[in-house]
């Protein structure tokens, strides 16, 4: 699999570390309760289709990126820097 790193260009997937679904958002820590965090940490959707995922370019620029990947075909539609995706 080839992943288009926004910094480094297209690179082999072996250079990256996979984390998982990019959808869950960390609750605002100061106020958020246990239930909100449990919901953030544990349940994950088992997506069949397009999915936004966090990958870390560990062997490259050390940037966390959001990759859009189809879990059925592994086709990759694109990638953005995580810090920009958040904005």
């Amino acid at each position: 699999m080839r992943i288009p790193c926004p910094y480094c260009g297209e690179r082999d997937a072996h250079e990256f570390v996979y984390r998982g679904d990019a959808a869950p958002q960390r609750p605002d820590g100061a106020e958020a309760n246990e239930a909100a965090f449990a919901d953030y940490v544990y349940p994950r959707a088992n997506v069949a289709g397009a999915m936004h995922e966090h990958w870390y370019h560990a062997q490259g620029c050390r940037t966390w990126i959001v990759v859009e990947r189809d879990t059925r075909s592994h086709a990759i539609a694109g990638a953005t820097l995580a810090r920009e995706a958040k904005r």
Binding site: A58, W64, A82, R83, K86
Partner: peptide
């Protein structure tokens, strides 16, 4: 060592850019 580095970067890039 490597996992903490990855974690620090995750916090900087993903949680609190």
């Amino acid at each position: 060592a490597a996992r903490v580095m990855q974690h620090v970067d995750y916090c900087r890039h993903v949680l609190w850019p």
